[in-house]
Design a binder for these strands. Structure first.
Lengths: 229, 229
DNA sequence: GGCAAAAAATGACATTAATCAGTTTTAAAA
DNA sequence: TTTTAAAACTGATTAATGTCATTTTTTGCC
């Protein structure tokens, strides 16, 4: 097998880089690489996870079903991100579902290697902790945005976020392509409202579209809108 | 000094219980106990914290100022909770302000003792990690509630939450007393809307009020409302 | 106890966003 | 290619919530 974690570029981006050589070797020996097709589920809300998933390629949406039957997308995970760690660490079933938004390649890492390293390698644990502290801070920001910003502001922000975090191609179109429904589920609004606002942004030339693809055209205008002028 | 952390009942509720005798002794020797008056700030958004605050008595609101000038209350911390750990762990300035909602007694624990234990005592680190994983999960739930539930549902839920987490006195009134503005800032709505809904709940006899105090009267009705009937 | 200031409450109105119903477009399958 | 289903879009309407203005009540203070 040539795909050793030790050589995996993706490790740069997550807490695994704080593991010792031996720990990483063990992880590498026990991991299973999977190919996931767009639209396929990686795990579902309520499941007990026996390990974590490390994203090598592609993007996954992490969402939670609300009482009214709508999915709320809480996070988008891409290259380097580890999914399911919360569940493994807290020894609870997951509170989120993970579904591929594009074709993906992920590595499943059985929890034993992770849990063991957590108890034996303080550097690794602190690294994971740091990462989680950061996630928590981001979650606070999301809460504030959700409750204090209008749908229009949240959609504008989402486009800027997507571009800054996942990049754009040479023509300026976002690398991640989400359906209108998914965008609506990210910002927490009705699909129709989302579509209407996208049309409006397009008419005002804040963004451009080509099929499902969306591109940021006028960053400043979008930014001003987010900040309330 | 008689207030040793080793004997502090509050420790039961937080990660400090995973510290070794020696570590705890050190923390106890370096801590400073403070009395905070209702309305007073403990720390402000953007500050660099040199330690964490352990709540011995009273309740504090943790909030974040949004672009439109409104405070969003992200969490209420009471007996046993540790505030500011995220900032210390991630070595970033705080993203939240902490203001006393009632008269409080808190212990300030300089970060050195904490950081040291994090690097040397894996049990402690894992305990902190577990706690944070739990907080993150809760934050996800808040995000979903904020975006998918109506203001009415969120207010109903807030009352149930306050009663379940902070209790009620013998007359059935909540132990934590928040101003209408604070309640509005917890659920993320305008103060007037909040007041209107409180009046409605009172008229329908879901809750009762006495001055600022609020009591849950019809738990089932509130619960049904939260769950969408 | 009386005064000033803050908090709570209410009404009228404007705005935002959800819902329902339907059409057009796109993508996928037979 | 044709057919069908899903996704994107549009319009009309309704419901929820925010805003502004004003009054009433409560609270802290001298």
């Amino acid at each position: 097998m040539k795909n050793r974690c030790e050589n995996c570029i993706v490790r740069q981006f997550n807490s695994l880089r704080a593991m010792s050589k031996e720990e990483l070797k063990r992880v590498s020996d026990s991991k299973i690489t999977k190919t996931i097709k767009k639209g396929q589920a990686i795990f579902e809300e309520g499941e007990k996870l026996n390990g974590v998933f490390c994203v090598r390629d592609g993007v996954s949406k992490l969402s939670k079903l609300s009482a009214n039957g709508k999915d709320q997308i809480v996070k988008l995970a891409s290259k380097g991100e580890v999914m399911g760690q919360r569940s493994v660490i807290a020894e609870e079933s997951t509170n989120l579902s993970a579904v591929a938004v594009s074709d993906m390649e992920v590595c499943f890492i059985p929890k034993e290697g992770i849990v063991d390293a957590l108890h034996k390698n303080p550097n690794f644990t602190v690294e994971v902790l740091r990462h989680m502290a950061h996630d928590l801070r981001e979650a606070d920001d999301v809460i504030v945005n959700m409750s204090q910003k209008t749908v229009k502001q949240r959609i504008a922000e989402a486009f800027l976020y997507l571009r800054d975090n996942f990049g754009a191609d040479t023509d300026g179109f976002l690398n991640v392509t989400l359906s209108r429904e998914d965008i609506a589920n990210v910002v927490g609004t009705a699909t129709e409202s989302c579509i209407r606002i996208i049309s409006e942004f397009k008419k005002k030339e804040y963004i451009k579209t080509s099929g499902k693809k969306i591109g940021v055209v006028d960053e400043k205008k979008l930014r001003d809108l987010v900040d309330g002028f």
